[in-house]
């Protein structure tokens, strides 16, 4: 079908999940000084979940490694990222 939910989109993408996360969110900073939570909206993989206490829960396993969260985050140092180990992470086949 043409119209798809986000879950259906994500099911078409192949990931080889690394043992350690390549993105780390310092939720203390999110709680202390972020009110906009830009990461929650802009992430194309929808990996950032806002918590009731103002923190952010992050799941690195289905990350496109695009860097948008890092660029959008206006809180100094809340998101630290690098690339996953070689051969791990997203593997596009068609795009």
């Amino acid at each position: 079908m043409v119209m798809t939910t986000h879950e259906e989109k994500m099911r078409t993408v192949r990931f080889r999940v690394a043992a350690t996360p390549h993105i780390v969110v310092n939720s203390d900073i999110c709680r202390a000084s972020c009110s906009i939570h830009a990461c929650v909206y802009v992430c194309p993989a929808n990996l950032f979940v806002p918590l009731d206490d103002g923190g952010i829960l992050f799941n690195y396993e289905q990350c496109f490694e695009c860097g948008t969260c890092y660029i959008a985050c206006n809180q100094e140092g809340a998101i630290r990222w690098s690339y996953p180990d070689g051969g791990y992470g997203v593997t596009f086949r068609e795009s």
């Binding site: 043409v2 078409t12 695009c66 068609e94």
Partner: peptide, 26 residues
């Protein structure tokens, strides 16, 4: 992206197509 595909000028172009892969990049 979903709204784009549903636009009246775009919908007839994509009708019947089936998703193979979703991706993103900066």
């Amino acid at each position: 992206l979903e709204r784009f595909k549903a636009h009246p000028a775009v919908a007839p172009l994509v009708r019947g197509a089936k998703l193979r892969e979703y991706s993103a990049h900066l």
